[in-house]
């Protein structure tokens, strides 16, 4: 917790903040934990650790500020510090490398799949979920934060500790990669031009 300002909440206030500001986000937080770890047991542990941590550091939460963003940041930091190392995920790609690769114009030209809305409408199973999970964790994360949770770029920059420009470009790349995956499924489903 880097915030310098610390509140001094009474026990009663702590409980009320926890119940009214933190608990309402528990489903979004679980989903984030699950999409990061890709394992429901790890997700449960990560969620519980995060909520207990949030409670322990409740004095550094300022009432009236965005509780959801504050919680997401703790969860993401816990994931990096405690889970990413032992995660079953094989993706140990150097992130800078991935980023500069996808920054090249070549890749942009290549990734313009002619995916059609009609093909998407036929994806009634877990295709999109599988496609999302198959992305590198950093790309997966920005899609979850933006498209599922509706965070603003500025909030995402704070949650992820990256500049807003990086949020934008990472999202751009993530969306193109997701479309590429979806386009592969669409082809398998028999959409010729998908």
């Amino acid at each position: 917790m880097e915030e310098v300002i610390r509140e001094q909440y009474s026990e009663r206030e702590k409980q009320s903040i926890f119940n009214q500001e933190f608990m309402p986000h528990i489903n979004s937080m679980y989903n984030f934990a699950y999409r990061l770890t890709l394992d429901s047991d790890d997700a449960k542990d990560l969620l519980q650790d995060t909520y207990l941590k949030a409670f322990r550091f409740i004095d550094s939460f300022q009432k009236g500020t965005n509780a959801k963003a504050w919680l997401f940041r703790i969860l993401k930091n816990s994931f990096i510090n405690d889970y990413r190392k032992k995660s079953k995920e094989p993706s140990k790609v150097d992130y800078q490398e991935v980023e500069s690769y996808y920054n090249s114009e070549d890749v942009d030209r290549q990734i313009t799949p002619d995916l059609r809305v009609e093909a998407l409408q036929d994806m009634i199973g877990d295709e999109i979920s599988v496609a999302l999970n198959s992305l590198d964790v950093d790309f997966r994360t920005v899609i979850i934060l933006c498209d599922l949770e509706g965070f603003k770029y500025e909030e995402m920059a704070k949650i992820l500790d990256i500049p807003i420009g990086t949020v934008r470009s990472r999202l751009h790349r993530a969306r193109n990669l997701l479309k590429e995956k979806l386009s592969e499924y669409a082809k398998k489903m028999g959409y010729k031009n998908a």
């Binding site: 528990i26 489903n27 979004s28 937080m29 679980y30 989903n31 699950y34 999409r35 449960k44 969620l47 995916l115 059609r116 809305v117 998407l120 409408q121 994806m123 877990d126 999109i128 979920s129 999302l132 899609i143 979850i144 498209d147 599922l148 969306r175 997701l178 479309k179 979806l182």
Partner: peptide, 20 residues
């Protein structure tokens, strides 16, 4: 534009899991 909107709707419909 319409593809992006459709993807977002699909994500929302299919990728939100509730906490047990």
């Amino acid at each position: 534009y319409h593809l992006e909107v459709a993807i977002r709707e699909l994500l929302k419909a299919k990728c939100s899991q509730h906490a047990p």
